[in-house]
Amino acid sequence: MNLIEILSYSFIQRALLAGILIAVLCSVLGVFLVLRRLSLIGDGLAHVTFGSTAIALAFKLYSAASLLVSLPVVLLASLGILKLTEKARLSGDAAIGIVSAVGISAGIMLASVGGGYNVDLLSYLFGNILSISPEEVLVAAGLFCVVMVLLGLFFNDLLAITFNEELARVSGVRTKRINAVLVMLTALSVVLAMKLVGIMLISSLLILPAVSALQLARSFKTCIMLAALQGVCSVITGIFVSFLTNLPTSATIVFINLLFFGVSCAVRRLLIPRSAIPSR
C-alpha cells in the first residue's frame, strides 16, 4: 500500500491534522508539567472528566453537550490540585492522586445511584484518533490556537515559575495566577482532546515527548521544540506504522514515543560528554 493511497482516506487526513495539532500542544504543555512534577495531571483530570460526564449523562446531556458540565468541573478540579499543593503542602503526585480518585469514584457512584443511562458511559467518554469528524478538526485547531497563544504570552512567566517560584515572585511574576493558567490550559486540553483522541494518547503525549526532550535539550527553547517535534513525528509515523502493521493506532503512537525516548537516552550517553553531566 503506497503513501498516496493511505493519504487518500479523509479519516487519515483528519487523524494526521488533528493528531499533529494535539501532539504539539500536549508536548509543549508537557515540558512545563513534567518539570513542575505534575506529569500525571492528564490521567488525573481524565478521571475527573469521567465523573463529570456521569453527571452530564444523568441530565441527558450527550457528546458535545456533556462539555457544559465536564469543562467547568475539570477546570475547578485542576485548580483544586493546585490548591492542595499550595495549602496542604502535598506533593503534586499526591494531590493529583486525591483529585483523580475522587473523580473516578464520583463517576462510579453516580453511575450506580442513577440507575443506569440511555447509553454506555465509557464508550462515549473516549475518542479514537481514527474517528475524528471534520468539526472536531476545527475544535482541535481552535484549542491549538488558544493554548499556543496563551503559552506564548506567558512563556517567560511560565519559565520563571518552572525554574524557581521564589525567584519568580521576586521578579514580579504573579506565581499563583501563572500556575492557574498552566493547569487550566492543561484541563482545557485534556477535556477536549480526550473526546477526540482518547486519554491514553493524551497522557502519553503529555509525558513522553517532554522527558525525551529533557535528555537532549541544550536550552529551554530547544527543549520545547524537540518535544513538539517528537510529538508530531510520533503521530505521523504512528499512523503510517499502524497502517502497515495492522496494529491499533493510538497504542502504536505511544510505543513510537517510547522508542524515541530510548533513542534520546542513548544519544545523550553517546554525544554529551560525561563531564558535562553533573554527578548526583
Binding site: 500500500m1 464508550s123 499502524s242 495492522n246 496494529l247 491499533p248 497504542a251
Partner: peptide, 11 residues
C-alpha cells in the same frame, strides 16, 4: 470491547 481497530482495518 477493549480492542481498537488499526488504521489498516479502517481502510
Amino acid at each position: 470491547s477493549e480492542s481498537e481497530p488499526s488504521a489498516a482495518r479502517m481502510a
